[in-house]
């Protein structure tokens, strides 16, 4: 039997050689915990994220828009499923993860604690929120943990499609009637800073970044990703005649990027701690669905026991 020190050396060597860590490989407990926290948080974000977007399915303004949005929300749920499965390879069950979410112990992306108030918000979520998520996720395709990396490769393909669809909604609005254009600008105004927060706190205040970079779970820092997002998004807004709500936004030739106003970090911490505009509603909706589904799950289990059949997972 190898000693813990030898096992750790093997682990470190794999990381250094850019090899994947697989479920059966030895890994430090801190690494396992970091991954469980991150992957389950990511899975919860997908599932909670279905709520603000689902909010507009019944009111989508054309049949085509309704179909596109339904398919999108379905994709998000599918991502939740792959990610829960990836986390389960680390020795935690989906039930335990869901319980932690409902008990308020596990987090999900704070962005979903903002309300979708108009149809333009559906465009803004696709364009900005999925755009920001892709920046994070492209990096995670090369993350060190094999199952997570493979889930992210699949997810990224669908997310870039969503981002284009979101931008298409914004473009139609921005080029539409004056009321539609105003709706689009208002959505950009409300979603811009919360989206910048999605990359996490500034590097000097990010408690988990150092470990994450060392273990190749993350490969770029929060601030690097945020800068990249701003550089990419500003020209997209300009192209459809929308204005990023930042009076200090200015191209900086020396750093080949934009200077921009950072988001209000007090708001960021407040929303994380539970006082965002929809934290209570989001969690309540998840708990309600779960509790009202209890008798349904029990019926399936009772039937399976009686008939000794497999549960259907469609």
């Amino acid at each position: 039997m190898k000693s813990e020190k030898e096992l750790e050396e093997i682990f470190e060597k794999k990381l250094a050689n850019n090899e994947f860590i697989e479920p059966k490989d030895w890994m430090p407990e801190k690494y396992r915990h970091h991954l469980i926290r991150q992957i389950s948080q990511h899975a919860h974000s997908e599932v909670v994220g279905m709520l603000p977007e689902g909010n507009w399915i019944t009111r989508a303004p054309s049949l085509r828009a309704k179909l596109v949005l339904l398919a999108k929300v379905q994709d998000e749920g599918g991502h939740g499923l792959y990610l829960y499965s990836a986390a389960e390879t680390l020795g935690i069950s989906r039930d335990e993860m869901i319980e932690a979410l409902h008990a308020g112990k596990a987090k999900y992306s704070s962005i979903f604690n903002y309300p979708t108030l108009t149809w333009a918000d559906i465009g803004a979520i696709g364009w900005l929120v999925d755009g920001a998520a892709i920046m994070n996720q492209v990096m995670l395709q090369r993350t060190s943990y094999g199952p997570y990396s493979r889930a992210m490769i699949r997810i990224c393909k669908e997310e870039s499609f969503h981002q284009r669809q979101g931008y298409e909604i914004m473009m139609r609005l921005a080029l539409g009637t004056p009321e539609q254009k105003q709706m689009a600008q208002d959505a950009l105004n409300r979603w811009w800073y919360p989206t910048l927060m999605m990359f996490g706190p500034p590097d000097d205040q990010s408690p988990n970044t150092a470990d994450a970079v060392k273990w190749r779970i993350k490969r770029e820092t929060n601030d690097q990703l945020r800068q990249k997002f701003v550089n990419q998004t500003v020209p997209q807004a300009e192209f459809i005649g929308l204005k990023v709500p930042d009076p200090n936004l200015k191209w900086n030739e020396a750093k080949k990027g934009y200077d921009f106003t950072p988001p209000d970090w007090n708001e960021f911490w407040r929303v994380i701690k539970g006082d965002g505009p929809c934290n209570k509603e989001r969690l309540a909706a998840r708990i309600k669905a779960h509790e009202e589904g209890k008798w349904v799950r029990e019926a399936a289990a009772a039937y399976a026991q009686k008939h000794n059949k497999e549960m259907l997972v469609s």
């Binding site: 829960y84 909706a285 009202e292």
Partner: peptide, 24 residues
């Protein structure tokens, strides 16, 4: 489609959303 995001568990949520998609 009123059920989307509110189904009794995730697999079933996806199945129902899929049926809504076909039907619409």
């Amino acid at each position: 489609s009123e059920w989307t995001a509110h189904g009794p568990f995730l697999e079933e949520d996806l199945a129902l959303t899929n049926i809504a998609l076909d039907t619409i």
